[in-house]
Design a protein around this nucleic acid. Sequence first.
DNA 1: TTTTGAGTTGTTCGA
DNA 2: GTCGAACAACTCAAA
Length: 488
Amino acid sequence: MSGPASAEAPAIVWFRRDLRLADNPALRAAAESGRALVPLFILDEETPGLRGLGGAARWWLHHALAALDGALGDRGARLLLKRGAAAEVLPAVVEETGATAVYWNRCYEPAAVARDRGLKAELRAAGLAVESFNAGLLFEPWTVTTKAGDPFKVFTPFWRACRAGPAPAAPKPAPRSRRLAGPWTKGDRLDDWALLPRRPDWAAGFAEAWQPGEGGARRRLAAFLKHRLAAYATQRDRPDRDGTARLSAHLHWGEIGPRQVWHAVQHRVADSPGRGLAESAEVFLSELGWREFSYHLLFHNPTLPEANARGEFDAFPWRDDADALRAWRRGATGYPLVDAGMRQLWTAGWMHNRVRMIVASFLTKHLLMHWRAGEAWFWDTLVDADLASNVAGWQWVAGSGSDAAPYFRIFNPILQSRKFDPEGRYLRRWVPEIGRLSDDHLHCPWAAPQEALDAAGVRLGETYPQPIVDHAAARERALAAYREMRAD
DNA sequence: TTTTGAGTTGTTCGA
DNA sequence: GTCGAACAACTCAAA
C-alpha cells in the first residue's frame, strides 16, 4: 500500500507522555508545517528495557487515550492506535501513510532515550524530517549542571540553580489548525487493548477519584489554584485534608505540562499578592522541582531502577519475608496509619505523599524489606506510577539514594499519625473497623485498655491485626542492620 | 587542591 | 511540657 502523493504527504505526531493539545510543541510544529496530521499512539510493551505499565497506570491510560481521541475528534481527527515495539511500528506507519515528517516530544527514561535516538537516526536516514521537543520538563537534564559541569546530586543546590536560570518558556495554546485529519490507515480499537481490569474490577473506586484527560487536568489545576494553593505550605502534610494538587498522574501522562502549571501558579500569585500565597507557591513549585530532580537523576544514572545509588547498600542485610510483605500490601500490619495508606493506595490508586514516606519507611526499616519490593507494588497500584519519581522516592526513603534521608531517620508511625491526622479522620475513613475507638486510642489500638476495645467492638487479632512488629524493637533491629552493613 | 558550609519531610533521650 | 543534642559521619558544591 503506498500513501498519498508526496505533495500531500502527512506528518505523524507521535503522542507518548504528552497526551494533550495545549502546550504541545510537537503537535504545534506539525500543524505549522502545513501538512495534514496523523496523530499516533503506540502501546509499546516490547522495547527491551522499557518497563511494562502497572495495572493502575493501564486504567488511567485507557481513559486518557479516550479523552485525547475525543479532543482530536472535535477537530475532525482520530487518534491512530498501534501496538508493538515502536522501532518497528513507527516505520511501518510511515510506510502505510506515506508520511514525510515525524514529530514527538522527548521522553527521558533510559530505554526510551535509546529507542528514540535510534528511530530518529533511522527515519532521517530514510529522508524524513524528524523533530523532537520538550513538553515534559521545566528544565531538561543536560541543561542543569554544577559549575564543574556535572549533574547535581543534592536537591537544594539543584533547585537553586534551576531557579537562578531563565524561567521556563510560557506555554502555548493548542494549534488552531483544522487539518488534524488522520488517521490514514487502520489502527487498533482501544477496547481491544484490554487496559481496564475485569473480574475483578479493582478499579471501581478510581472513577470517582479521578478524571483522566486534558480537561480533567485543567479543572484539577484550576480548583487547586483557587481553593488550596494559599494554604498549601501547611496543609500539604495532612492526609486527612484535601490539601494537595493531585496532579501527579496528569503530569505523568502529560495531560498537563509542568510549564503550564508553573505559569498558572505565577499568574495566581501575581493576581492576588500576599506573603502567605507567595510562600505556599514556592513550596508547591519546589514539588515540581522534585519531579524534575528525579528525572535528572534517572537520566544521568540509568541503573537507578535496579541498583542502589550508594553502593554500600549492596551489603545491607535485607530480609525476605513473604508474610510481612503480604501484610504490608494488604494494609494489615496492625499500624493504623500504615494500613490506612496501603488501603487508600489499593482503593483509589493513589496515596498522600506523607503517608507514602511512612509506609515506605515502615517496609524498608521496620520490616527490613528491600525497597525494590515496595517500589514494584507502588508501580503496579499507583495511577501516577512514574519510573523516575517512584525509584528516586524509594531510594530516598530507604537511605540508598545519593541524596537520601539518613538511615537512622526512622518514622514512628504512631507519632506521625497523631501529628498529621490528629482527629483520626484519615484513619477512620480507611480503617473503619477501629473507627469507634477514641481519638487517642485510634492511633495505637494495641495500647488501648480492654474495656475501650470491647466498647469499640475491636478484637485484636480478629477484627483488626495485632501489630506485626513492635516499633521500638523494629527500630533497634533496623539500626543494628545499618551498623552491620557499615561494618563490612 | 583544600577548605568550608550545608544537607526535604525524624525520633529519642535527658536536662 | 519543652528544649537541645545525639544519632554517624559523609558527600556534595562552591569558593
